[in-house]
């Protein structure tokens, strides 16, 4: 019996494949995927770049070096088995919504911006800043002379 196969690859789709001839992939006949993290400078974070197929970690590193380390500066690479990465489901995306809610602006670190504005004001008006001794003085007492 001939039926249309569901392949997305047009070359495969054109083939007259017997419906009974479904291939079965054995456990060791495919390569797992590895997530690749690339570091552009010592001390910087490793950043996710993409993934590679490989049967085990050593070959995953060999492949990751050529796929993701050959066109821009790179000092180090991590590979992590894709199935060792744990994640949320997108159906739980609503959990994250409140992070960008305008009603929670108090969570934003705006205080730092105020300090920048004060410094700028003082600089513009040529006000010398003296800090009194002690903790109280530091927080409470920027004095003008």
């Amino acid at each position: 019996m001939k039926t249309e196969n569901n392949s997305l690859d047009p070359r495969i789709k054109q083939l007259d494949l017997e419906s009974s001839a479904q291939s079965k992939v054995g456990e060791k006949e495919y390569w797992i995927t590895w997530e690749v993290f690339h570091q552009d400078k010592r001390g910087n974070h490793h950043e996710h770049q993409g993934s590679v197929h490989a049967p085990e970690a050593e070959l995953a590193l060999v492949f990751a070096k050529e796929q993701f380390g050959r066109r821009k500066k790179c000092v180090n690479i991590w590979v992590v088995r894709t199935d060792h990465v744990f994640t949320f489901s997108y159906s739980d995306e609503d959990m994250f919504e409140s992070a960008v809610s305008p009603e929670k602006s108090y969570r934003e670190a705006n205080g730092f911006k105020v300090r920048d504005r004060i410094s700028e004001y003082k600089k513009k008006n040529k006000i010398e800043v003296k800090v009194k001794g002690g903790v109280e003085g530091y927080f409470g007492g920027i004095t003008e002379t």
Binding site: W31, V52, H53, A54, V62, F63, K65, E66, Q67, R70
Partner: peptide, 11 residues
């Protein structure tokens, strides 16, 4: 064999 090896060997 496989795209990753193809790229590595060609490179």
């Amino acid at each position: 064999p496989i795209i990753e090896e193809d790229i590595a060997f060609a490179s």
